[in-house]
């Protein structure tokens, strides 16, 4: 067969000393690297559209139940700590900046900057989970503010509060699972960046993970006012 490049990323003559991102060839069914980059980016955007639709189901459920049980939901939001929510929002916003900066570093070939930015993002992700776990999930679970049958908080104001906690735990839980996946992806990116895999001519993975992280961030930007701020 005659393709314009080798099969996957690991091709090239063995004696080629250039770094990985220099000698990278697009997969055989693409015309060139730009073609592949465009396709991957479109794929990532479509995947993110599915993510938004996934969360929109949760938002929709929230709207319906707020309409059905306004007292429980207004009460419920008073139980949440706006301070921790705000701190977490800032943490995620910072990480969104560093991930964008990381893509920029990859584009200009600043590998050290890329690694630094990936690390900061990684730390932000962990910090988000830590703050959520230690200051919010933990105490709430201890007080019995849990969903459905596990609800055992003695001072509930409204019979439908278990439902509110159901929505809270499921919505933030699914978001947190996305943060965990993101942390995994950043570890992977860091390891690859360490092996000098990324550079101006090849940074598809950085771009893709970056887009994913932005969506995780944006979902939180909607969850925060919806759960914490609207009374």
């Amino acid at each position: 067969m005659s393709t314009i490049s080798t099969d996957s990323g690991h091709g090239g003559p063995a004696q080629d000393e250039r770094p990985y991102h220099e000698q990278y060839h697009a997969a055989h069914h693409f015309r060139n690297r730009d073609h592949e980059f465009d396709a991957v980016k479109m794929g990532v955007w479509l995947f993110l559209a599915t993510e938004i639709l996934l969360f929109s189901g949760m938002f929709c459920a929230y709207a319906v139940f707020r309409m059905l049980h306004p007292e429980a939901f207004i009460n419920g939001s008073h139980y949440l700590d706006v301070e921790y929510g705000l701190i977490n929002t800032l943490v995620l916003l910072l990480s969104s900046y560093t991930v964008a900066a990381g893509v920029r570093c990859a584009q200009v070939g600043d590998l050290r900057g890329l690694k630094r930015n990936i690390l900061i993002t990684l730390v932000c992700g962990v910090a988000f989970l830590a703050i959520k776990g230690i200051f919010e999930y933990g105490p709430k679970a201890m007080q019995g503010k849990l969903p459905g049958v596990f609800f055992s908080y003695p001072n509930a104001h409204d019979p439908n509060e278990p439902l509110w906690w159901g929505v809270y735990w499921v919505a933030t839980g699914i978001h947190a699972s996305h943060v965990i996946v993101g942390i995994g992806l950043f570890i992977w990116l860091y390891l690859r960046a360490n092996k000098k895999h990324f550079g101006p001519r090849h940074y598809t993975a950085v771009e893709g993970v970056g887009l994913y992280w932005h969506i995780v961030d944006i979902v939180w930007i909607f969850l925060f006012p919806m759960l914490y701020l609207i009374h």
Binding site: A61, F65, L68, A72, P147, G148, P159, L163, G166
Partner: peptide, 16 residues
């Protein structure tokens, strides 16, 4: 976990 979103006995909505 009997979250209750679709169970009318727990305040949920089966039509949702």
């Amino acid at each position: 976990f009997r979250v209750g979103v679709f169970d009318p006995a727990l305040g949920g909505d089966p039509v949702l």
